[in-house]
Nucleic acid binder design. Structure first.
Lengths: 128, 128
DNA sequence: GAGACCCTAACGCCGCGTGAACGTCC
DNA sequence: CGGACGTTCACGCGGCGTTAGGGTCT
């Protein structure tokens, strides 16, 4: 179980419990390349996840709650962890980040508006 | 075309153009009871929408952008317009509103966090 | 009467997740 | 052996797109 003293590892069961998702969902995300388990020597061997993958799953689930598609989420998570980003394409990555930040700000704005509307109607309802 | 001087009416085509959605989508939303067209004397007659329905559609589409399901959106829109809300169930409606407001605040919080994380990684990327 | 729109009704597809059936390892 | 985990396949649902078949208006 322990290879490196400095990092924690998790079974699929622990991941399930931690985030209250099914094992099927976790495998599905791995299938899509959203998360990765430690390489297994043999097939049919149990999955093990590093702590970085635990955090990744956390990000993914947050993204889902926020209404992003798994595809968008993959882009964002890859960005945040900036894995597998070539050297020359720095500008593209920055541009993508700026784009996403703009989108996030718009969403925040719209949520704020929605909240205020509901609040207003709630109030109007109380005053009747 | 004009029945009342004080209110505007819209064809399905105008609604499409206004919000850049398909006619299928509009009919689908009506099918689900999310919006309503003016009653038609004959079947197979063209749909007409009042201004209140135009605003309703606007709310619906905002809800979609924010990642709510059409079902959730229906609840929220009904709340905001507080149509068809019985007299006695006031508390339930207020409770629902409070609940939704809490959810919205959580979403805002999570979006904020996501934004900050992307910003941080963008910065780290620049400093390299 | 040919187009350009509308209508309804039905099927199909994609994204996402689940269930069932079955093998495998300890 | 049993039970937790693995895999593969196929279905189910939401949210439409699309097509078929038929109307009306110009």
């Amino acid at each position: 179980v322990g290879c490196d003293v400095t990092e924690k590892y998790y079974s699929i069961h622990e991941m399930m419990m931690m985030f209250d998702v099914s094992s099927r969902t976790i495998r599905y995300y791995e299938e899509l390349g959203l998360i990765h388990s430690i390489e297994r020597a043999l097939p049919n061997q149990q999955r093990t996840f590093s702590d970085s993958q635990r955090r990744r799953l956390k990000l993914i689930l947050r993204g889902k709650r926020l209404g992003f598609s798994l595809h968008e989420i993959k882009e964002m998570v890859d960005l945040i962890e900036h894995n597998s980003t070539g050297e020359e394409g720095k500008e593209r990555i920055i541009a993508y980040a700026d784009q996403k930040i703009k989108e996030l700000e718009e969403k925040i704005q719209e949520l704020q508006t929605t909240k205020e509307e509901i609040l207003a109607h709630r109030q109007r309802f109380l005053d009747e």
